Simulated scan of single mutants.
Amino acid sequence: MKKTKIYLRIFWVALVLIGLALFFLYPEKFTHDSISAFVKENSTKIFSTYIGICLIRGLFLLPSTPFIFAGVLLFPESPWTVFWISMFGIMTTSIYLYFASKFLEFGNLFGQKHNSRKTKIIEKLDKHGFWVVLGWSFFPLVPTDLICYIAGSTRMNFIKYISAIFIGESILVACYIFLGESILKLI
């Protein structure tokens, strides 16, 4: 498992370095006009790739925010399409993490030492779970994936869980897309 993480980090750093090298070697390819022309010429391939990435990014626990902003930049004329693709990817990931938490044994991370805390978390989620998950999924500075694991490992009511994720993330994604679109129009 550790080797996989190391390889993924090396791969991620390599991609960033390659991107930076290309940016400095070929700055004319990274102008607004050349990127727009490239996107128009390859719109079908880019759109299909974007959908695929939005669906699988959760398997690698990558945050959705950069991909939402990428969608706004790539498809500025289709904000609702970006919204629904992003939400479909987020919901798919949330469902996967909820059910995978049982098999990944996330609940065991609490351990016997923290059994009283685990009991308190389960009680809170039973009592206020909808609001906890909704607030957590709306707040942009915390990873939604973590609450997905917690809700799944504590067996929170699935309907409450998925409804809260949908509402919280819908608000956040809409803010990202439509505020991002407004900011792009100013530039």
Rank of each mutant, 00 (worst) to 15 (best):
C148M: 06
R117A: 15
K118C: 06
T154Q: 05
V142I: 13
H128Q: 03
G135P: 06
I150M: 10
R117T: 15
P140A: 09
N115G: 00
C148A: 10
L141G: 13
T144K: 03
K118A: 11
V132F: 13
G129M: 07
D126L: 13
I150D: 02
I121T: 12
P140G: 08
G129E: 05
G129A: 05
H128R: 04
S153C: 11
G129W: 06
V133N: 04
W136Y: 11
P140F: 10
V132L: 14
V132G: 08
E123N: 15
L125T: 06
T144W: 02
I122K: 14
S153L: 00
P143T: 01
W131N: 00
T144N: 14
T144I: 05
I122H: 12
L146A: 09
R155H: 13
S153N: 03
S153T: 12
T144P: 02
G152R: 00
I122P: 09
S137Q: 11
S116I: 12
I121V: 14
F139I: 02
C148F: 06
R117D: 14
S116W: 12
I150Y: 07
P140W: 11
S153R: 02
G152C: 01
G129S: 07
R155C: 03
V133K: 05
F138P: 02
S116T: 14
L125H: 11
I121N: 09
E123R: 15
I150C: 05
T119R: 14
R117K: 15
S153E: 00
L134Y: 09
G135C: 05
L125M: 14
V133C: 08
H114E: 15
K127L: 06
L141F: 15
I147G: 01
T119W: 10
L141D: 10
V142R: 07
S137T: 13
I150A: 07
R117V: 14
L146T: 07
A151P: 11
G129Q: 05
E123H: 15
F139A: 05
R117M: 15
A151F: 09
Y149M: 03
C148K: 02
P140Y: 11
L125C: 10
N115L: 02
K124H: 13
F130Y: 15
K118F: 14
D126Q: 15
R155I: 00
C148P: 06
G135H: 04
N115P: 00
A151K: 07
I147D: 00
L134V: 02
A151I: 04
T144Q: 08
T154I: 00
I147W: 01
D126R: 15
C148R: 01
G129T: 04
T144A: 10
T119Q: 14
L146G: 02
V133R: 03
L141E: 09
F138M: 03
L134T: 03
A151T: 06
S153D: 00
T144F: 04
L125N: 10
T119P: 07
G129C: 08
A151D: 08
S153K: 02
L134D: 03
Y149A: 01
C148L: 04
I122E: 12
T154A: 02
V132C: 10
S137F: 11
G129R: 04
K124D: 12
L125V: 11
G129P: 10
I147E: 01
S116N: 14
I121Y: 11
